[in-house]
Every structure is written in C-alpha cells, then in structure tokens.
Amino acid sequence: MQTKETIVCRCEDITLDEIKSLISQGYRTIDEIKRVIRAGMGPCQGRTCRMLIAQELAKAYGIPVGDVLMPTFRAPVKPVKLGTFAGGE
C-alpha cells in the first residue's frame, strides 16, 4: 500500500505513513497519536480514522482490535453553532 499517499484522517490530512511512524516511535494508543498529530480532532471527531488507527495498533502489538483502548467519545455528535447553544437560533 502507498502509505505516504493514503489518508487515514481526512479532517486533518494525516497519512498512514505518519500513523505507522508514531506507532514505531512508541506511541501506544489512539489517544496518544491524536494528541501529537491531531488525528481524530477535526469536524468528524475521528469517525473515519479512529478504527483505522485501532487496526494499525492491533497489528503492531499483535492484539485483537477490540483490545485497543478507545478515546472518550465527546459531545456534540455533529458540529453545532455557538449561536444555537446560546439560544439565539
């Protein structure tokens, strides 16, 4: 696979190559990878990349995907305007 051209996190333009590089440097969970390169911090909040990164971690550590620690799922589910929360719209 062309790891340099394969985008894993579409919101933040993070490639598979960058994810693999961080895993090889010892970053062990989705949370750690997210904090260093912002994968999963964009508007979709990791809906696309979360499981893809989980797969890579599972492969690297030889564990089932289900055993990879998930980051906290945070509100809101979809981006919402501040004006809406303020009650103006």
């Binding site: 911090m41 964009g42 508007p43 909040q45 906290t72 945070r74 509100a75 809101p76 981006p79 919402v80 305007k81 501040l82 004006g83 929360f85 303020a86 103006g88 719209e89």
Partner: peptide, 11 residues
C-alpha cells in the same frame, strides 16, 4: 461574531 462558529468538541 463567534455565534457563527461551530463547536466540534467539549471536554
């Protein structure tokens, strides 16, 4: 002006 900005995450 910030009323038009969308919130993506709270913690």
């Amino acid at each position: 002006l910030l009323k038009n900005l969308r919130v993506v995450r709270q913690w």
